[in-house]
């Protein structure tokens, strides 16, 4: 389908709603890591399918943008394909699977391996925006804790991790401190990707639809992963290269290749992997 459906405004949301969401985004950019409430709208997909990210993308995307959508590093999952198709339909924007070509990248669970550059926007889909919720379910209390920078509880969680597992066993949604101030949940990306957030030249926006929160990391912001002096933060290490492209410094997924227990470890970032194989060929 090529033309925008007449029933929809550009990018599905009406201009009023987009302005409201942009105001929330501007506030989020002005206070890096701070969770800004916004009035989440009904989207033509259920919560849990990235409604927060979709609303953020809809509010920042323009007719000249080129959109990439990834889910677990892949452009081809049902979720990624349907969100990409949604924007192609309601905003008539160009889409791509190539990280370098994209101006807006909506993601669930990964940051692309190809370094992002100035002018790009990375939009994260966020299920649970509140990093303190694990130990403090009361929202009135977590709000005070953020306001007063009372983040001891985050270390209680890491302490517990080490006590129960011998090391910090949190591998996804690993908490970070943003520009030395707010503690933030980076959404369920692997901690492998945490260092990519630090000093990143792209704008990073986070949208939680069900929880109605938006937060942001402006370009070139300091992002530190929380840790202990004697248990410093470390990313996952893989003891083998990608089985398809041979890359060694990337995040690998385990792929079952047949029904006789055949397994393969390959780049979770499919675009990155294909690019490398094309270049090698």
């Amino acid at each position: 389908m090529n033309a925008t459906l007449p029933a929809y405004n550009f990018a599905y949301l009406d201009e009023q709603t987009k302005r409201m969401i942009r105001r929330a985004i501007l506030k989020a950019v002005a206070i890096p890591g701070y969770q800004v409430p916004f009035a989440s709208r009904e989207m033509p997909m259920p919560y849990g399918w990235g409604t927060g990210g979709v609303q953020v993308t809809a509010s920042v995307i323009g007719p000249d943008d080129i959109l990439k959508v990834i889910d677990q590093g892949s452009d081809d999952t049902t979720n990624a394909v349907s969100i990409r198709a949604f924007f192609a339909r309601v905003a008539n924007v160009a889409v791509t699977t190539k990280t370098v070509e994209a101006t807006v990248i909506q993601t669930r669970h990964r940051i692309p391996e190809t370094p992002l550059s100035e002018g790009q926007i990375l939009v994260y889909q966020v299920p649970i925006p509140e990093p303190l919720r694990f130990l403090e379910p009361r929202e009135t209390e977590t709000r005070i804790m953020h306001a007063l920078e009372e983040y001891g509880l985050m270390h209680v969680k890491l302490y517990e991790d080490i006590a129960q597992n011998g090391h910090i066993a949190t591998t996804y949604a690993y908490p970070v401190k943003v520009e030395g101030r707010y503690v933030m949940d980076p959404s369920p990306i692997p901690k492998f990707d945490n260092p990519k957030m630090d000093d990143c030249p792209a704008l990073q926006l986070f949208g939680a639809g069900r929880e109605q929160r938006i937060y942001a990391i402006p370009p070139h912001t300091r992002i530190e992963s929380l840790d202990f002096e004697d248990h410093p933060f470390r990313v996952q290490e893989f003891d083998r290269p990608c089985g398809l492209c041979g890359a060694t410094d990337v995040y690998l997924d385990e792929i079952v290749t047949d029904d006789r227990g055949g397994r393969l470890f390959a780049c979770s970032d499919t675009d990155y992997c294909e690019e490398r194989r094309e270049r090698a060929a």
Partner: peptide
């Protein structure tokens, strides 16, 4: 917990 709340960072 209280130790971590006042900034102890050595497990």
């Amino acid at each position: 917990e209280r130790l971590m709340a006042i900034g102890d960072r050595h497990y």
